[in-house]
Design a protein around this nucleic acid. Structure first.
Length: 696
RNA sequence: UGCGAGGUAGAGCAGAGGUAGCUCGUCGGGCUCAUAACCCGAAGGUCAGAGGUUCGAAUCCCCUCCUCGCUACCA
C-alpha cells in the first residue's frame, strides 16, 4: 500500500435506460463501495467516481417508442438510479452523467487530441439506412427474411427460428424494425482506432505486468490479445451523443464505448479542481469495478485510449465480478426477472444492510452465483439476527442488568485465558479482514467479520455471567469477573462496528449510537483497540440491529417476481402481435392423399415443461405418446408458462425429422392454431383420448 | 464450431502433489443472559466422468460431459 498516495475508484457507469437491480449492486457497486469505505476508514486519499451512461442507440430507440425525447429518458433514469444508490449507501463522491457539458467537452477534446496526433484511420462503408426515420440502423434493428429457413422476421444478427447467425447483408428484403420501411444502403465514413497497434503495449503492461489480476479477467484479456486485435470504429451515425469535433462530421457522434469511460475523467473534473492529480500522477492507484461483460472495454480498449492520448495513469486492477442469477435463472431486464433496488428499498425499509450483507456474502467473485429469497431470509435470520445482532444485544442487555447501565471497569488482575484468547482473535481478524479487502476478496472479509461476533457469543457462553449473578449474594462475590466479561464484550461490540462499517455502514452507525460514541471511532486505526468505550460511561438502551425476515415476506417477493414476469411476457406478446398480423397465411398448393398419409400425427400429454435457457420463445416439453415419451422444443413461451401447459393434451407430428434447437434435440412438433391477434391455441381432441391415439 | 471462466457435503465457498476443510442447513445434546436466539457434538463427499504421470492426485497431463461469458436487452 505504501507505493500509492491516492486512490481513484470507479464503478461502471450504468446505462440510463432502466433502474438498477441487485445484479448491478452485487457485481460492481457494492464491492466498489466496500473498498472505498475501507480506504476512507484508513484515511487514504480516495475519490469514488460514478455516473450514468446516457448516450447510445438503445436510449434513442426507447425515446422514439415512448414518444419522448432522449433527454427525457435519461433524466428519468438518472434520477431513479442515483436515488437507488443513495438509498443503498453507495457512497460516490460524485455521481455524474455523460450528458453534462463538462463531459461533452472532455470527450470531444480527448478525441480531437487523438485525431490531431494521427491516431485514427478513416474508413468508408455501406450501411443500411432507414429513410422514414432518417437514420442508420444497427444490426439488431434490422429484420428480414432468413436465407436459411425462410423466417420472415429474422434479425440482422441472428435468426431466432433456425438459430443461424447472420449479417444484415444476408437478409432478404431487409426492413427497419422501427418504421417497417424497406432499407437502402448508404455510404458512410467513420474513424477507427487501430487497436492492433497497441498489442505490444497491452501485452507487456497487462499480460506481463498484471498476472495478479483475477483469473476470469486475466484469462479473458489473454484470449483477446492472443487472437489479435483489429481496428474498431470509434464513431457512429446518430444525432444522440457527443458530436465528432471535426468539420466534415455532420450527423456523427462518438461511439458510446469511446465516450463512456472518459466519463470517469469528466466526473472527476466536476468533482475537484485537483482532478489531474488523480488521473495523471503515477502514485495514484486507479481501480475499475465492473461486471464481466465490460472486461474488454476496461482492460483493452480504454487502456489503449489512455495510452494513445498519453499522460494518464493506467488501471492498477480491474476486479470484475461474474454474474448473479436470481432464483436459479439469469436476471433479465426485458423479461422483468429482477429484484429492482427501488422496489427493495420500499419493501424493506431501513434494511439496506441486510441486502448489502446478503449480496456481498453471495457475490459472484469467482463464478456466477445465485440469489434466492429463501437464502436471503436464512442469512438474515441465522447470521445477521442470530449471530451478529444477538451478540450485540446480549452484551448490551447484560451490561444494563448486571453493571447498572454503565461500561464496567476491567480488572487486569483477573484477566484469564479466555480474555487473552478473545483479544488475540480480535487482532488476528483485523489482519485477515485487511488482507482480504485489499485483495478484493470481500466475501471472505465479511465472513471473518461475522466470525468476530461468533467468537463474542462463544466468549459469553463460556463466561456465563448470568450464572455468576444467580443471586445478589453471588453477584456481589463475582462482580469483578462479570465486569471483565462485559467490558470486553462491549469493546468487542465497538470493534464490530469498525469491522462492519465498510460492509454495513448503517449498522455501524446504529452501534455507535447505542454505545454513545462518535463516528470517528470507526476509523480503521481503532480496530483492535480495547479502549473504544470508556469505563463508567452510561450507554443507551439496546435496539435490535436486525429484524427477522418472516416467511410471508419472502413468499410475497417470490410471488411478485413471477407475477411481474408473466406481465412482462404479456406485454411482449402484445407488442409482437402487429407483426404477426401482417404475415397473412397464403393458400398452399393442393397435395395428394399420399402426401398427407406420410404424416404421423399423435395425441400426447405434456408431462413436463420448462423454459429453455437463453431463448425467449422456447419451452422444452416432455410429451407422453403412449409408447414413448418425446422431448419437444416448442416456440410457445411467450404465450404459455410452463406451469399452465403441463397436463394438456396436444397433437404431435411424431415423424418429423429431429432438429436441434439451442442444443436440445426436438423430436416432433406440436400443432398450434393462431388467431387474428396472433394468439396461439393448442389443437387438441374435443374430449380426452388415450395418449398415443393416432390422428387421421 | 472456437476461446475464456467455472464444476469440491443439501446450499454457499476454501484448498492447487502428502490423513478432504469452513459457514449455513439437518440431526443429537447443553444452556437460558439474549430476537425459539446462543454453545458443544454428530451425520453428510468415489473433490463432474473416464484414462494417464507419481510411492502418493481434488491438486499435474490427456479426453469427455455440464454451466456461464465472448454472442439480443444486460453488471
Amino acid at each position: 500500500m505504501a507505493k500509492f498516495n491516492r486512490y481513484l475508484i470507479t464503478a461502471a457507469l450504468p446505462y440510463a435506460n432502466g433502474p438498477v437491480h441487485i445484479g448491478h449492486l452485487a457485481g460492481c457497486y457494492l464491492p466498489a463501495d466496500i473498498y472505498v469505505r475501507y480506504l476512507r476508514a484508513k484515511k487514504e486519499d480516495v475519490k469514488f467516481i460514478g455516473g450514468t451512461d446516457e448516450h447510445g442507440v438503445p436510449i434513442l430507440i426507447k425515446a422514439m417508442k415512448e414518444n419522448v425525447t432522449p433527454q427525457d429518458v435519461v433524466d428519468k433514469y438518472h434520477k431513479i438510479i442515483s436515488d437507488s444508490f443513495a438509498d443503498m449507501g453507495i457512497s460516490f463522491d460524485i455521481f455524474s452523467r455523460t450528458t453534462n457539458p463538462v463531459h461533452h467537452e472532455t470527450a470531444a477534446a480527448f478525441f480531437k487530441k487523438m485525431y490531431d496526433d494521427g491516431l485514427f484511420e478513416e474508413h468508408e462503408s455501406e450501411q443500411y439506412y432507414d429513410t422514414v426515420k432518417d437514420m442508420f440502423l444497427a444490426d439488431r434493428y434490422i429484420v428480414g427474411t432468413c436465407p436459411n429457413c425462410g423466417n420472415p422476421n429474422a434479425y440482422g444478427d441472428q435468426c431466432e427460428r433456425c438459430g443461424s447467425s447472420l449479417s444484415p447483408e444476408e437478409l432478404i428484403n431487409p426492413r427497419s424494425t422501427l418504421s417497417d420501411a424497406p432499407l437502402v444502403k448508404k455510404l458512410t465514413k467513420h474513424w477507427y482506432m487501430p487497436l492492433q497497434n497497441y498489442e505490444p503495449f497491452l501485452k507487456e503492461w497487462l499480460l506481463d505486468g498484471h498476472k495478479e489480476w483475477k483469473n476470469n479477467v486475466y484469462g479473458q484479456c489473454k484470449s483477446w490479445l492472443d487472437s489479435g486485435l483489429q481496428s474498431r470504429a470509434m464513431t457512429r451515425d446518430s444525432n444522440w451523443g457527443i458530436k465528432v469535433p471535426l468539420p466534415d462530421a455532420e450527423g456523427k457522434v462518438l461511439y458510446v464505448w469511446f465516450d463512456a469511460p472518459i466519463g470517469y475523467i469528466s466526473a472527476t473534473k466536476e468533482l475537484t479542481p485537483d482532478w489531474a492529480d488523480y488521473w495523471c500522477k503515477d502514485d495514484t492507484k486507479l481501480v475499475h469495478f465492473i461486471g464481466k461483460d465490460n472486461i474488454v472495454f476496461h482492460c483493452i480498449i480504454f487502456p489503449a485510449m489512455l495510452k494513445a492520448h498519453g499522460n494518464f495513469v493506467l488501471p492498477e486492477n480491474v476486479p470484475a465480478n461474474e454474474f448473479l442469477n436470481l432464483e436459479g435463472e439469469k436476471i433479465s431486464t426485458s423479461r422483468n426477472w429482477a429484484v429492482w433496488v427501488d422496489d427493495y428499498v420500499k419493501d424493506f425499509p431501513d434494511q439496506q444492510d441486510v441486502l448489502r450483507y446478503v449480496l456481498c456474502s453471495t457475490a459472484p467473485e469467482t463464478k456466477d452465483n445465485d440469489f434466492s429469497w429463501k437464502d436471503f431470509q436464512t442469512r438474515n435470520n441465522s447470521e445477521l439476527a442470530g449471530i451478529f445482532g444477538n451478540f450485540v444485544n446480549r452484551a448490551m442487555v447484560m451490561m444494563h442488568k448486571l453493571c447498572g447501565g454503565k461500561v464496567p471497569p476491567f480488572h487486569t488482575e483477573l484477566k484469564n485465558e479466555r480474555d487473552e484468547a478473545l483479544i488475540a482473535t480480535l487482532q488476528e481478524k483485523k489482519a485477515k479482514i485487511e488482507n482480504s479487502i485489499e485483495n478484493y476478496r470481500f466475501r471472505e472479509a465479511l465472513a471473518e467479520m461475522i466470525d468476530v461476533a461468533r467468537a463474542g457469543n462463544k466468549y459469553l457462553q463460556e463466561n456465563e455471567p448470568w450464572n455468576l449473578a444467580k443471586t445478589p449474594e453471588l453477584q456481589a462475590v463475582n462482580q469483578k469477573q462479570i465486569d471483565n466479561c462485559l467490558h470486553l464484550s462491549l469493546q468487542l461490540t465497538a470493534n464490530l462496528a469498525i469491522f462492519a462499517n465498510p460492509f454495513m455502514p448503517f449498522t455501524a452507525k446504529k452501534i455507535c449510537h447505542m454505545l454513545k460514541v462518535v463516528d470517528r471511532i470507526l476509523d480503521w486505526e481503532n480496530a483492535g483497540s480495547l479502549k473504544l468505550v470508556s469505563v463508567g460511561y452510561s450507554l443507551r438502551a439496546p435496539e435490535l440491529l436486525f429484524k427477522k425476515v418472516e416467511d410471508e415476506q419472502v413468499n410475497s417477493q417470490i410471488e411478485q417476481l413471477h407475477a411481474r414476469r408473466i406481465k412482462a411476457m404479456e406485454e411482449q406478446k402484445a407488442a409482437a402481435t402487429p407483426v404477426a398480423e401482417k404475415v397473412e397465411a397464403e393458400p398452399k398448393a393442393t397435395i395428394e392423399f399420399d402426401d398427407f398419409a406420410k404424416l404421423d400425427l399423435r395425441v400426447g400429454t405434456i408431462l413436463e415443461a420448462e423454459k429453455v435457457a437463453k431463448a425467449d420463445k422456447l419451452l422444452k416439453l416432455l410429451v407422453d405418446i403412449g409408447t414413448e415419451k418425446r422431448t419437444v422444443v416448442s416456440g410457445i413461451a411467450l404465450h404459455f408458462t410452463p406451469e399452465e401447459v403441463i397436463g394438456k393434451q396436444v397433437t404431435l407430428v411424431a415423424n418429423l425429422a429431429p432438429r436441434k434447437m439451442r442444443g436440445i434435440e426436438s423430436q416432433g412438433m406440436i400443432l398450434m392454431a393462431e388467431n387474428a391477434a396472433g394468439k396461439l391455441v393448442f389443437v387438441n381432441p374435443d374430449a380426452a383420448v388415450d395418449a398415443g391415439s393416432e390422428v387421421r
